[in-house]
Simulated assay, not measured.
Amino acid sequence: MSALEPRDDVDVPPLAVDAPAAAESGGVLGRSYRALSIGIVSVVFLIAFEATAVGTAMPVAARELHGIPLYAFAFSAYFTTSLFAMVLSGQWADRRGPLGPLAAGISAFAAGLLLCGTAGSMWIFVAGRAVQGLGGGLVIVAL
């Protein structure tokens, strides 16, 4: 007998959830939760991908924008405003629900991406990263 085969001599406690209701919903990828689950995973994936891309492209961006002395500010601006936005998002979501901070966060993140993508100087790029941090902090807590 392998470890994966069921055993008859073991008592299995009853599930704490209603088994028929759980079977009907199909779990997180069932019909009723599929769009929400895909949306949540997509938002988290895009924010994580952006962080990886920025880490990779930052040396070239700083050099092209003549902002090597401000290199660290591009990272710290994101993390500082993200921390602030996490606290704000938690309070906002507790009072009014998660939809407001989620929508505002996605909008701010997109605006920050646009600002960074069109930056002509390193200071504008750092400002864009700060706006992205606000958006990322709002989104991650709201999710």
Rank of each mutant, 00 (worst) to 15 (best):
I124Y: 04
I40Q: 02
A3I: 15
A57H: 04
I124M: 15
P101T: 10
R95D: 09
I140A: 01
V10G: 07
S37Y: 09
D18T: 13
A142N: 00
P69I: 01
E24H: 15
G97T: 05
G136C: 03
G100L: 10
S25A: 13
M58A: 06
A35P: 11
I124L: 15
A77C: 06
L113K: 00
S25E: 07
L134T: 13
L15N: 12
A103P: 02
R31V: 10
G128N: 09
G133A: 06
T118I: 12
M1H: 12
F125R: 00
I40N: 00
A110D: 01
M122T: 00
V60N: 02
F79W: 13
D18G: 04
G133H: 01
G120M: 10
I47Q: 02
L134C: 06
A21W: 06
A16V: 11
E24D: 15
H66Y: 10
A51Q: 13
S25G: 06
V12R: 04
E5W: 10
A22L: 05
I38C: 09
P6L: 02
P20H: 10
F73H: 14
G137M: 02
G105D: 00
F73S: 03
L65M: 08
L114Y: 10
R31G: 15
L102M: 14
P6M: 07
G117D: 01
S121L: 11
F125Q: 02
Y33W: 14
D94A: 11
L99Y: 12
L143W: 03
M122C: 01
G112S: 13
L134Q: 04
L113R: 03
G55M: 07
G67R: 08
G120E: 07
L70Y: 03
R95G: 08
V126C: 02
R7K: 14
S32K: 13
D9S: 13
V44Y: 07
G97W: 00
R129N: 08
S2Y: 12
A53E: 08
A16E: 12
D94P: 02
